[in-house]
């Protein structure tokens, strides 16, 4: 069994009117089955309102299933006794960088988690140092978080989670409020953690270029997992992704359009390098020329 497993997970939000009568039920997550392996980089894609954030909050026991169950390292999230173990195993980073930093000084914020876990003082300092170094924010340790850029704040938040020594880190749209620079910074830090420390990463996003390097991608719509597989497999289904209100990277779309016009290109081209290589092959062999002349 993997580090995180969801079995037939469903979650319903119940809306009530002023008197407390049930006005409507929204099934935000509907029959999701997942099995995530330790050390993997997982991406969960979906448009706003597809249920991806609600799903993520289950991995950290912030929400509990209406139906089905979620297991983190073999522990049931519905079991009140293991909630704190689960939250330590699976740390969580949220969307708004301002609303998750508690400390008034960077290093104090990173120390907040370990303090809650009753880690002895000396070890807190060690953990704070290593975590800030892991995300490249060590030189800002004495700064006020208010004076950092969005990308820097998110890296502090990530350090705050790593300091709890989790085996898995869940990032709920960590880049949605950042500019392109900030987005790159954060994704770079996350990939480094996954590769160097072997921490399992679950990245929730709607930016396609961020999931290119994932081991596995899940696509959600209307509370259900509607596609899953390697990025290449997912991105080869351009029409389907569009129907799900998602983008594909522009190169992938260009390759897809070229293929539709008859060029014999492979499915799911993800980078500019790949496309250029393939086009060069075509040019040398003259295959493309045949087609274009034929048509």
């Amino acid at each position: 069994m993997g580090i995180i497993k969801a079995i037939n997970l469903a979650f319903e939000y119940i809306r009530r009117d002023e008197e407390g009568n049930v006005e409507g039920i929204l099934r935000a997550v509907d029959g999701v089955n997942l099995d995530i392996e330790q050390g993997d980089f997982i991406a969960i894609l979906g448009h706003n309102g597809s249920g991806k954030s609600t799903l993520a909050k289950h991995f950290n026991a912030l929400l509990h299933p209406t139906e089905g169950s979620v297991w983190v390292e073999g522990k049931d999230t519905a079991d009140a006794a293991s909630v704190w173990d689960i939250r330590q195993t699976a740390g969580m980073v949220f969307q708004n960088p301002d609303n998750q930093i508690i400390g008034q000084v960077v290093e104090e914020d990173v120390g907040f988690g370990p303090e809650n876990l009753s880690v002895p003082t000396e070890q807190i300092w060690e953990r704070v140092e290593e975590s800030l170094k892991a995300v490249g924010m060590y030189k800002f340790r004495k700064h006020s978080p208010n004076k950092l850029s969005g990308g820097q704040k998110q890296r502090v938040s990530i350090a705050g989670v790593i300091a709890m020594h989790p085996r898995c880190i869940i990032l709920d749209e960590p880049t949605a409020m950042l500019d392109p620079n900030g987005r790159k910074e954060v994704i770079r830090a996350v990939r480094a953690l996954n590769q160097a420390e072997g921490i399992t990463v679950i990245l929730i996003t709607h930016y396609m270029e961020e999931v290119v390097y994932a081991d596995k991608v899940y696509v959600m719509d209307d509370g259900k997992v509607v596609m899953q597989g390697e990025p290449r497999t997912i991105f080869s289904q351009v029409e389907e992704l569009r129907r799900l209100r998602l983008d594909v990277p522009q190169v992938t779309e260009l390759a897809y359009e070229l293929k539709k016009s008859g060029l014999p290109l492979p499915d799911g081209i993800l980078t500019i390098d790949e496309l250029v290589e393939e086009l060069k092959k075509l040019k040398c062999s003259g295959t493309g020329v045949d087609y274009v002349i034929d048509s």
């Binding site: 508690i102 003082t121 807190i124």
Partner: peptide, 14 residues
């Protein structure tokens, strides 16, 4: 999410 559960049993960084 960062395991805060009140002041009991918390250690202090400083």
């Amino acid at each position: 999410a960062r395991c805060y559960r009140g002041g009991d049993n918390r250690t202090k960084m400083k």
